[in-house]
């Protein structure tokens, strides 16, 4: 009995030591990289918002996060919503949503919508679609053909636009846009109630 316990300790102790060592290493690296990664993501987000609203490099919009309702009205997949202003001028809203139905992870999209409920632009923050295959729909050409300038009714009444060879990604994209529009409606209705 004692011998077996000793054996067990002899085997497991080195494993524990190795795990601790690796965790320490990862933690040390993370200490240095985490702020940089955070900054990168923030910069990416800011740049994306600027691109979405067609702003030049020196223009800095104010991006205010909106409070999301915590009830069943919130469409699934909604992550955050922002009101984007340039000085005093209201530029529109920016919805951060995920679209389910893609091959592996959900698509993370930014959808810019103006005050009239028209889609200004789309931008993909993160996708793990196959390069050259699934990501064929995640580009300006596909966006502008099917989504840009459309309103809620126009998009929900039509069939999801599909590109042959990227059906699943195109569906995920549609779901993301659908979610963003639903979120927009929820938010505007809420505002209407409040006023």
């Amino acid at each position: 009995m004692k011998g077996r316990l000793l054996d067990l300790a002899r085997i497991s102790l080195p494993l524990v030591v190795i795990c601790t060592l690796m965790v320490a290493l990862i933690a040390a690296v993370n200490h240095f990289t985490a702020p940089v990664i955070n900054e990168n993501e923030k910069a990416l987000f800011n740049q994306s918002v600027k691109d979405l609203f067609g702003l030049s490099k020196n223009e800095e919009p104010t991006v205010d996060p909106l409070h999301l309702p915590e009830n069943e009205l919130l469409p699934s997949g909604a992550l955050a919503a922002y009101a984007v202003k340039m000085g005093e001028k209201q530029l529109g809203y920016c919805m951060e949503v995920t679209g389910s139905g893609a091959y592996s992870e959900d698509l993370r999209m930014l959808v810019a919508i103006d005050g009239d409920g028209q889609i200004i632009d789309l931008c993909c923050l993160a996708s793990s679609e196959t390069p050259g295959k699934g990501d064929k729909v995640l580009n300006d050409g596909f966006y502008s053909t099917y989504y840009l300038g459309r309103t809620v009714d126009e998009i929900t009444s039509a069939d999801p636009p599909i590109l042959s060879g990227s059906t699943k990604t195109a569906t995920a994209l549609y779901n993301a846009v659908d979610c963003a529009l639903a979120l927009y409606q929820t938010l505007t209705v809420q505002k209407g109630d409040g006023a």
Partner: peptide, 23 residues
């Protein structure tokens, strides 16, 4: 338990490389 140990070491370094590349 050498395979388990190797995998721990390898996955640790992959995580580190991933974090460095992301940064």
């Amino acid at each position: 338990v050498r395979i388990a140990a190797y995998i721990v070491i390898i996955s640790g370094f992959v995580t580190i490389v991933e974090m460095l590349m992301k940064a």
